[in-house]
């Protein structure tokens, strides 16, 4: 059986003038359908670049991203991204923001009533149906991120890409949204890749954690499987031995073996 998503010997370098900086080197990873994978690493290690490569927003320098054996070479709605800063269009309401995506993706295949129902179903999924006529400026940061997730889910993507989705949120809001994402993942079984720099978040949400070495020429240092049963509850897990062991493994990787050296930047 071939993998659902395959990152096949990916290199990525950026050229600026005649100076070439190698960001990612020899990334190899396969992800199964329905899996929740986190990518963790220090800032500047190229994890966002990796996500952009999977999204197709930037092109690989060498190697290939294969989704169901088809090469990814441009962005598309089957690889929906939830951006760190939500990226909702401020002149549209919550409903219109999602409608922009739904009208484009399902404009031919769904009737108007079906599209409306689909938008409302996705808003319900993130518990934002009450704010459908509000503009992004009128709702809180956590709510915006919920709408961002609803917009991505409404594209019915093959892979959901989360780019540090909770990075800009306070701890409590973040916990709520993590629960929401876990709930959605268990209900829809969506294949998900999440970029994060939060160890607890990675262990709590993921089936596997991909740990990146430091740049330049960062690569995958280690992949940790998280053998915790679902559904997971954060309060119970906080004293669970497997959870703590996984957490320790990630911390050791990040802070002992691949310590972030500012001078290397």
């Amino acid at each position: 059986m071939t993998a659902y998503l395959k990152l096949d010997h990916i290199d990525k370098s950026f050229a600026r003038g005649n100076q070439v900086s190698e960001v990612l080197k020899d990334i190899r990873l396969t992800i199964d359908k329905g899996e929740f994978v986190s990518i963790i690493g220090h800032s500047g290690c190229g994890k966002s670049t990796l996500l952009n490569l999977i999204a197709g927003l930037t092109r690989v320098s060498a190697g290939a991203v294969l989704l169901e054996d088809k090469e990814v070479d441009s962005p598309g709605p089957e690889r929906a991204v939830v951006f760190q800063n939500h990226s909702l269009l401020p002149w549209l309401t919550v409903y219109e923001n999602i409608n922009l995506a739904v009208a484009k993706v399902f404009g031919r295949t769904k009737s108007k009533a079906e599209r409306h129902e689909w938008i409302m179903r996705n808003l319900d999924l993130v518990q934002m149906a009450h704010a459908r006529d509000k503009r992004p400026a009128e709702i809180s940061g956590g709510m915006k991120q919920r709408v961002g997730i609803a917009r991505a889910l409404a594209m019915e993507p093959k892979i959901l890409l989360l780019d540090e989705p909770f990075g800009a949120l306070d701890a409590l809001t973040r916990a709520h949204l993590q629960d929401a994402v876990m709930d959605i993942h268990s209900r829809l079984g969506s294949t998900t890749i999440m970029i994060t720099h939060d160890v607890d978040e990675a262990v709590l949400l993921s089936d596997r954690i991909v740990m990146m070495t430091n740049g330049p020429a960062a690569t995958i240092g280690e992949v940790l499987a998280v053998p915790l049963a679902r559904p997971r509850r954060r309060v119970e897990l906080s004293s669970d031995r497997t959870f703590l062991r996984c957490r320790e493994a990630v911390l050791k990787f990040l802070y002992e073996r691949h310590r972030f050296v500012e001078a290397a930047e």
Binding site: A55, L57, S74, P75, G76, P77, R79, A80, V81, F83, S87, L89, L100, A101, K104, V105, M155
Partner: peptide
């Protein structure tokens, strides 16, 4: 990026 992902 949003417009590219939506293929506008």
């Amino acid at each position: 990026n949003v417009s590219r992902i939506l293929r506008l």
